[in-house]
Design a protein around this nucleic acid. Structure first.
Length: 139
DNA sequence: GCCAACGTTGGC
DNA sequence: GCCAACGTTGGC
């Protein structure tokens, strides 16, 4: 089981949009960055991820799960770009902000803290547990 | 709204 | 294959 972080502008595609898709999930399409794509190619069915709002909110708002492994991105004919499908699992009772992450020494090596521009990021198990605890989930 | 950081593109 | 120019992202 691996852990990930998916970043999105809430006005473009937010947690509410994702949650509205329910168990069917939705393609995480539109990614045009090799590192992010490679991360998606590495994902397995059932992997868990954080859903992060960039822009004005800058906080982790929910948990998602990979419900379809890497496949061609339906929004382009360019064969370079693949994506996975993800579904909303549950919202965080208490969203964990970027500032919270920066302030916690245990999260100082998080990709989110050090390379905020990468839109699909790996998360370590320790980081996952720390953030779940901060967010009010047992983990 | 600004600007720094980063990734990609294209000319050489 | 290098590197300058450009576009985009996202925090501030």
């Amino acid at each position: 089981m691996a852990y990930w972080l998916f970043k999105s502008e809430p006005h473009t595609w937010g947690w509410d949009d994702q949650a509205a898709k329910g168990a069917a999930g939705e393609e995480w399409d539109g990614v045009r960055n090799y590192q992010a794509r490679n991360n998606m190619r590495a994902m397995k069915l059932g992997d868990q991820g954080f859903f992060y709002h960039s822009g004005k909110d800058r906080e982790i708002v929910g948990i998602v799960e990979v419900c379809a492994e890497s496949h061609p991105d339906s929004t382009t004919d360019d064969p370079r770009w693949d994506c996975v499908d993800i579904k909303a699992v549950e919202p965080l009772p208490t969203p964990v902000s970027l500032d919270d992450c920066k302030a916690d020494a245990r999260l100082k090596d998080m990709v989110l803290v050090n390379n905020s521009r990468l839109s699909v990021q790996p998360v370590t198990e320790e980081e996952w547990q720390v953030i779940c605890a901060k967010g009010g989930l047992s983990g």
